[in-house]
Write a protein that binds this DNA or RNA. Structure first.
Length: 857
RNA sequence: GCGGCCGUGGCGGAAUUGGUAGACGCGCCGGAUUCAAAAUCCGGUUUCCUGACGGAAGUGUGGGUUCGAUUCCCACCGGCCGCACCA
């Protein structure tokens, strides 16, 4: 009998699938469509176990949906622009383009042996001119519709690498690569008007009921809607009013000072003839502005000498301070301080000896404020002092609402809704990105390129046949001898191209739409997009919960406005699933200086006393619990090695078993071994069944077929609800039942074929092999999914547990449709019940048909 | 600080709307097969008491609702994640 040799049969069936072209996505009016997409990879050059897990989940769904009669779109591409390619070029020469395409070839070659049912005819990379040219076309449409604009903005500037850095790339105030101190520089940059969509992006979250609540919440917080009010405070010196923004106007009575941002126009104006103030402002500007530093920085302020009038109690004048903690970017750059009900304000007030006044107290508990501000939850009732704005005993929320109404009615302030979400700055001073298709002309100004000139291609060399030198910091496009030169699209005079390229998040904000028509001459083909969109199931890591998904939601709306997507596709991802990581233990020893030294899993020798290095006599190795795989910790398992050792099906089976897909799964050698052993066992078992010839046995046959239908039911349910681990557990149990069954060969062959079908989404190669072995027609990949017969899911008799006072004490076997009263009689006659009752009458007997019986004594 | 998620055997984890807690796998123990080993197969494996039959406790801790709670409610403890000088 043939042994399970994964490498052979996997190649065989991949060839068969390719020949039959069964994974090509084809529009079919007679079938429901299903679009399953995994977040496309960055072509780093190696696939890792996280990729394997991600794409296996998508593939299981794609294969299952195909079997249930759907027209399936399951594409793959490459998120191919970005800094690593340029860094590689800087570090070791070569060209980002060559590096990227080489990596794509390598990764595709590593991915193909996994047998994913991908329509490779739709593959593209975002660095293909055919793709980024269409992205440029989109950009021109966005300009036309006012969805993108240019403005001055303060950015993080790395003076050594001569580029703008994203906030995440600034570590302790220094560029992550150069280590140079980052400067804040004002540059003219392009921005998407995503903030115009704040309200809609927030409201529409409620419709995404197949997204994880956690992701919706994170987006909600990111968009950050707050309702507040702008209140002008009249200056006692007769100058223009200072307008403060507040979300807690109900605490107005407690306002005892005003704090301005150092960048506030009034601060700047006052600094002109106030030396100490000027010095204070200069000092704060020198300060590190990274989040970490801001967190630690002491709250400091300086009194300006200016005072303003309290809008409700005009006899109370409030001193105006400049505080380093007030952000110019949020609200109006001015706040009123209410020490009694804001901890930060209280700390500030205590430090500088400012007045503390309560606006309210907890009902019945009038306690003086000491070092802790009184900040009850907004839905808790408080007692307002002075009943100003007509508020007395009510919740803070009611107080806020009533105060805003009052202020508006008396023309004292204007209610405001604010969002944390800022416009999306997309300009990057990099080479390896999508060129922004605009031209600067001395006479015409900023002129969009003509669509017929697209794509604006990245230059490969310096225009004189010499390679671009990537070892010089800065943007090669900016110093390129002739790429910038171009005639003005409007007047034809010599003009200059924009040399900034787009943030790579732009590339990934619409690729899902491009997959529906990857070769279209326009960004999308409305007929194709109308058919395939939305993505029915999107799968990826939770690290993209905010930026990528929010940008994509914005882009889908913007594309709809430009006529590239139907209205129905403005929320592009119907269902989202965020999968966990693949983790592994870390093996560590220490060198003479006590520094940790990490070791590869294959270098560890396991003994009864624990892990040792190399051999049983080797040094004792400290085993650190499972953590994310990382090269520096050497706890990486390379999928290529696993496929070589066990085959793709084992890798696929293992990454789905053991842990729920949303949680991390720990890679263990013993687990991978077990997965392989099981597949080999199924191979052996089915081969035996295929070759056997035993007469039927009515009872055993029925028993097995019942098991089969139960397996169909449970596995189908598992696959539909991301219960892959539970589905696999059921498949283990069903295989065990099949192996133990005394049923005849016919029943066993039927059960075996069903087992094979149920396994096919997870282990497609093995399934094809066994399908063929059982003499079934065609490919299991195209066979219709089995359907469970409801009648076969219920046994004729049920085992009812008997509880006495809620504790399980015995059980009885009864016919499945036995009358409640009869069940009760049987139960009361049971010896365990009689013993417990001890002659007394039961207080109550609860019979839940088919479930349980509970006797209350 | 704010918001959210999660605590179940030695380990990963399972458990429709509240209804037999520990499915399935790992590990471990015992056995079969073998000259022996590998591979394979069979049995056992929450804890405690008992020789056994059997009994008792048990899902982080403490309370509550219920005939019945891993599941629902409250408080606390522990871990993880997101946001955060947001006025």
């Amino acid at each position: 009998m043939s042994r399970y040799v994964a490498a052979e049969l996997e190649q065989k069936w991949q060839n068969a699938w390719a020949a039959a072209e069964i994974f090509k996505a084809v529009r079919d009016p007679d079938r429901p469509k299903y679009y399953v997409l995994e977040m496309f990879p960055y072509p780093s050059g190696r696939i890792h176990m996280g990729h394997v897990r991600n794409y296996t989940m998508g593939d299981v769904i794609a294969r299952h949906r195909r079997a249930t009669g759907h027209a399936v779109l399951h594409p793959m591409g490459w998120d191919a622009f970005g800094m690593p390619a340029e860094n590689a070029a800087m570090d070791s020469g070569g060209h980002p383009k060559d590096w990227t395409y080489r990596n794509i070839d390598d990764m595709r070659a590593q991915m193909k042996p996994l047998g994913f049912s991908i329509d490779w005819s739709r593959e593209f990379a975002t660095c293909d001119p055919e793709y980024y040219g269409q992205q440029q076309a989109l950009f021109l449409d966005f300009i036309e519709k006012g969805l993108v604009y240019r403005k001055n903005a303060v950015v993080n500037w790395d003076p050594v690498d001569m580029t703008v850095l994203a906030n995440e790339q600034v570590i302790d105030g220094r560029g992550w690569r150069s280590g140079a101190e980052v400067e804040r520089r004002e540059l003219t940059q392009w921005f998407f008007r995503i903030s115009d969509f704040s309200e809609e992006l927030l409201d529409a979250l409620a419709t995404l009921d197949e997204w994880p609540a956690k992701v919706r919440l994170m987006q909600e917080n990111w968009i950050g809607k707050s309702r507040g009010i702008e209140i002008p405070f009249a200056r006692t010196d007769g100058g223009g009013a200072i307008t403060c923004y507040s979300t807690r106007p109900d605490t107005m009575r407690g306002a005892t000072f005003i704090a301005l941002s150092p960048e506030h126009p009034v601060s700047r104006a006052l600094a002109e003839d106030n030396e100490s103030l000027a010095e204070f402002i200069a000092e704060t500007r020198r300060m590190d502005t990274t989040e970490a530093a801001m967190e630690k920085a002491e709250k400091k302020g300086i009194e300006t000498g200016l005072t303003v009038r309290h809008p409700i109690w005009p006899d109370r004048d409030l001193p105006v301070w400049v505080g380093n903690f007030v952000l110019m970017e949020y609200g109006t750059g001015a706040v009123f301080g209410c020490p009694a009900h804001d901890q930060r304000d209280l700390d500030f007030a205590r430090k500088y000896g400012l007045d503390v006044q309560s606006a309210f107290y907890m009902p019945g508990k009038k306690v003086a404020i000491a070092d802790t501000a009184l900040v009850p939850p907004k839905n808790e009732t408080v007692s307002y002092i002075d009943h100003f704005a007509g508020i007395g005993d009510c919740t803070s929320q009611q107080g806020i609402d009533a105060t805003i109404d009052y202020f508006e009615a008396h023309d004292l302030g204007q209610g405001q809704v604010r969002f944390r979400l800022r416009d999306w700055g997309l300009s990057r001073q990099r080479y390896w990105g999508c060129p922004i298709p605009v031209v600067y002309c001395d006479t015409c100004g900023v002129v969009p390129e003509k669509k017929e000139n697209l794509p604006i291609r990245l230059p490969y060399d310096d225009g004189n046949g010499k390679p671009i030198d990537f070892s010089i910091p800065g943007n090669p496009l900016d110093r390129h001898p002739n790429w910038r030169d171009t005639p003005c699209p409007s007047c034809g005079a010599p003009a200059r191209r924009e040399t900034d390229t787009m943030d790579t998040f732009v590339d990934s904000s619409w690729y899902y739409a491009r997959f529906t028509a990857p070769h279209a001459e326009t960004p999308t083909d409305l007929a194709e997009a109308g058919y395939w969109m939305n993505v029915d199931q999107y799968i990826g890591g939770v690290e993209h919960a905010i930026l990528h998904l929010l940008y994509s939601r914005f882009f889908a709306r913007a594309m709809h406005i430009c006529g590239h997507l139907p209205q129905s596709a403005i929320e592009p991802f119907d269902a989202l699933f965020t999968q966990g990581m693949v983790t592994h233990e870390i093996y560590m020893t220490r060198d003479e200086t006590g520094r940790p030294v990490y070791h590869l899993p294959q270098d560890i020798h396991w003994t009864e006393s624990g892990a040792r290095l190399g051999s049983a006599q080797g040094r004792v190795v400290e085993v650190i619990p499972s953590a994310k795989m990382s090269k520096s910790k050497k706890n990486v398992v390379d999928p290529v090695n696993i496929i070589d050792a066990y085959g793709a099906d084992t890798a696929r089976w293992f990454v789905l078993s053991d842990s729920p897909p949303e949680r991390d799964v720990e890679w263990t050698a013993s687990g991978a071994d077990a997965a392989f052993r099981h597949l080999a066992r199924v191979h052996r078992l089915v081969a035996e069944i295929a070759a056997s010839d035993a007469p039927g046995d009515a009872e055993a046959d029925l028993l097995l077929l019942r098991e089969m239908h139960k397996a169909v039911h449970e596995v189908s349910g598992g696959l539909e609800s991301f219960g892959f681990n539970a589905a696999i557990a059921k498949l283990y149990a069903f295989a065990n039942a099949l192996a133990k069954s005394r049923a005849g060969s016919d029943a066993k062959r039927t059960a075996a074929a069903t087992l094979v079908q149920l396994m096919a989404p997870m282990t497609p190669h093995l399934a094809e092999e066994l399908w063929e072995m059982l003499g079934r027609e065609g490919l299991v990949a195209t066979a219709p999914w089995p359907v469970a017969d409801p009648a076969m899911l219920v046994d004729d008799t049920v085992t009812l547990p008997i509880q006495i006072n809620g504790k399980r004490r015995a059980e009885i076997v009864v016919p499945k449709d036995m009358d409640k009263a009869d069940v009760e009689k049987l139960v009361l006659a049971h010896e365990a019940v009689i013993r417990s009752l001890d002659g007394a009458e039961p207080r109550k007997v609860i019979v839940v048909p088919g479930r349980i019986v509970n006797v209350v004594v």
